[in-house]
Design a binder for these strands. Structure first.
Lengths: 362, 362
DNA sequence: ATCAACTGCTTATACGTATAAGCAGGCCGT
DNA sequence: ACGGCCTGCTTATACGTATAAGCAGTTGAT
């Protein structure tokens, strides 16, 4: 118990203190059933362990048992948001309930096989990683290091024979957003796709959902690849203006359309935009306001994530919210099954149901 | 290399494959200098290791050497933002440069000594944790488990004889924000303090910086404890309005003050608010706009963090930005010194310089 | 020719734990 | 009285690694 004793106490130290053998200490402290040990001895051992401040050596245990109970979750290069952090916390809780220890591991600087090797050193029982990182070779390294479950996180449509996958149905999110925009009378649907590395793939999936809805409703569809900057967003608006003046010769330059009543033969074209997420929606709305567009009059905007900022935008942002509540539990459960069952690459799980949160931007 | 070979290859397997002893494998793969091993043998060993897909067993190594090279960073209960994630990534990079492996560990569900025990099992070489978690007993557990460096993250003013501390000078942030507000002619200074658990303490420190500046300038100061909700913010504005009509009998109700020229004897009272961070600033600005206050005309607002959203608010948000660039490197360096030096509880480090980013909200 | 020093390895051991196997003593049935 | 079974332990071992110590063969100095 004294600070800076030379060496941490071992189970053997505890054994000596309690006057029993080291094996007995192990049996007692691990509550191993089937072993016949008197209650009195059990108490003596526990008391000795407490007195010495004994903490088991995870490395030694791993060496002996062959597995660590660790679940490795590499920190990925997606911009972490409130949402992702919440999911991680919930997943941590669920995994610990099942007896695992979740660990997050900075993985940005290592790639491919090198990263896999680094992960494998800890002999985790499972690795959860972004699907695109799990190349054939990387997975081979993990498996040959004895890691039971390798779970890839990806988007629906990504598939792998080599690992279990947990996917998120991004296309369905696009559909939900777009259906809502169509119901609000938008005569044009636009999907914004971020250019950032970690986000782009999801953006494309969401966009294709929007496209499907546009096709079903016979409404023109455009996809815009957008960097997260006001300049890029403004450039997009310039294109829109050009398209407007070219398409319908209603009004050119200056005030676009009086918003009083749509009495004229052609209703004013209302654009519907699914902005990929709430951050992009905020960017878009700021630039729209700067350029005299009215929301939702000229342009209806739907975000995604239902971040706190969604409620604070004016108009308040309509957005798609994930149901985070149950997903981590399902994932943890599936992972446990893979570990226990020993099957590989069988599971296909789609998580995260979602719902539209209707506010004032549409 | 084949998937699901029964057992992961060990250094002994590599040794057999290369026709040398296990010791030689260890010497070669760890690049141990001082050992005389021919280049030809070295090559043979490395090739064999590659062929077998050998990955060292971190647990065994830890057991043998007595230390793991792991630096444990418990995930704390503060709301994680872009900033915190950025810092973690940078810290990870710096630590790995020094030969450590940073690991983030979900710690929310365990408290005090129990948490310390869980950390200690991994025999990390260092633990970085929020200062308030590091009770005397918890630190004892960590030290007696052989952990060299225990570093507490806290605010300036928090102090400990038992661990090294890295603090952030929140008061100085408040001073910077308030000085700017004063220079902009604010006749009242208000500091907002969040009520959330992890944030409150920092908020109080920042507020006391604002208070100091207010005192120095002979300007009234108020502190407002605010929950992150529109209702709470609106309630605060109600109080302000009452104070206005009571204090100066200039104008009651309706249009507060024409903003053309301040020709009258009394200039219109301009409030300066340091909103704790950008999120709170956004909340405040939304509610201010809803209630007919003009920013920066009636109220000047300063945020903190320089989040992407700061640029997207209208008016664009003046904010305090941390200089994140060098801090993690300094912290990593200090940690390394503590580990190497073996001193305990000596270091006192204050990090994170900051600067005002002037925009349109003041 | 002899001994020392160097090269390029090998052999042996310890780290802390979990667990299979064994063993002393008491009790019971016949 | 003697084997068999139960209780409550102990003894012995293996996990994979790093490293101290040792050792055969060669080179170089005297």
């Amino acid at each position: 118990m004294d600070v800076m004793s030379a060496k941490p106490p071992t189970s053997l130290d505890v054994a000596r203190e309690a006057g029993v053998s080291q094996a007995t200490v192990s049996y007692v402290l691990n509550n191993r059933e089937g072993m016949r040990i008197s209650d009195e001895t059990r108490a003596r051992v526990r008391e000795a362990a407490d007195r010495l401040g004994y903490v088991p050596h995870a490395g030694a245990r791993t060496l002996r048992t062959g597995h660590s109970g660790l679940v490795l979750v590499p920190l990925v290069d997606i911009p972490y948001g409130v949402l992702a952090v919440g999911i991680m916390e919930e997943l941590d809780r669920e995994l610990s309930r099942l007896g695992y220890t979740m660990i997050q591991y900075g993985a940005r600087r290592l790639k491919g096989v090198a990263a896999a090797r680094a992960w494998a050193e800890l002999r985790p029982v499972a690795v959860i990683a972004p699907a695109e990182r799990l190349t054939r070779q990387a997975v081979d390294v993990l498996h040959s290091a004895g890691i039971k479950a390798v779970v890839g996180l990806g988007v629906v449509g990504w598939s792998s024979e080599i690992v279990s996958t947990v996917t998120m149905d991004h296309e369905a999110i696009g559909v939900t957003a777009a259906e809502h925009l169509a119901a609000r009378g938008c005569s044009t649907l636009t999907a914004i796709v971020p250019v950032e590395d970690g986000l782009r793939e999801m953006g494309l999936r969401r966009a294709s959902g929007v496209q499907r809805v546009a096709a079903a409703h016979g409404v023109p569809y455009t996809r815009v690849d957008l960097a997260f900057s006001e300049a890029a967003a403004a450039a997009m608006l310039d294109v829109w203006r050009d398209a407007n003046s070219a398409g319908s010769a209603d009004s050119v330059d200056g005030a676009d359309s009086v918003d009083g009543a749509d009495t004229a033969g052609r209703a004013p074209a209302k654009r519907g935009v699914f902005a990929y997420n709430d951050d992009y929606a905020m960017l878009l709305m700021a630039v729209l306001a700067d350029n005299g567009f009215s929301v939702p009059g000229d342009v209806a905007v739907v975000g995604c994530d239902d971040l706190p900022l969604a409620k604070l935008l004016r108009p308040r942002l309509t957005t798609v919210r994930f149901d985070v509540a149950t997903a981590p539990a399902v994932l943890a459960q599936a992972l446990d099954e893979v570990v226990k069952g020993g099957e590989i690459g069988r599971h296909r799980l789609t998580l995260w149901t979602h719902a539209l949160v209707e506010r004032d931007s549409t």
